[in-house]
């Protein structure tokens, strides 16, 4: 029985670490801030959620119900989208360049219209 749970925990940890490493590679490899936000906002969060689930299962198998870890998972879920939104928005407003492959930019029209109104 414990062998079974150990296997599940190990699989969860390996999946989580895989996603975390991919997000780190993505942050180094991708070309502009906005694409990098994709890597950090999604993969890192999911990876760490997998790891924390593994931790929760590990302690649950010993009969300890550790609610703080579930709370940490909830916080990660809630905060990751807000953090990536704030970073990309401040990047755009500070005029960080988009990648040269970019095809459409609807946001530019909005800010230009705003400038005209002033």
């Amino acid at each position: 029985m414990t062998g079974m749970i150990d296997v599940i925990v190990a699989v969860f940890v390996v999946i989580g670490v895989f996603f975390a490493v991919v997000s780190a590679i993505g942050i180094v490899r991708l070309k502009d801030v906005y694409s990098r936000a994709h890597a950090s906002g999604k993969s890192a969060t999911l990876g760490v959620i997998f790891i924390m689930l593994a931790v929760f299962i590990h302690f649950l198998s010993q009969g300890v119900m550790n609610a703080k870890i579930l709370l940490a998972i909830l916080f990660l879920f809630l905060t990751a989208p807000v953090a990536s939104l704030m970073i990309t928005r401040s990047a755009y407003r500070n005029g960080v360049k988009l990648d040269k492959n970019t095809v459409t930019d609807d946001l530019k029209e909005m800010y230009e219209a705003k400038d005209r109104d002033k």
Binding site: V22, D32, L98, D99, N101, T102, V103
Partner: peptide, 12 residues
């Protein structure tokens, strides 16, 4: 991320 050539076309 793991694609050898980075040729995706991002956009807003």
């Amino acid at each position: 991320v793991l694609k050898p050539k980075q040729d995706h076309k991002p956009g807003i």
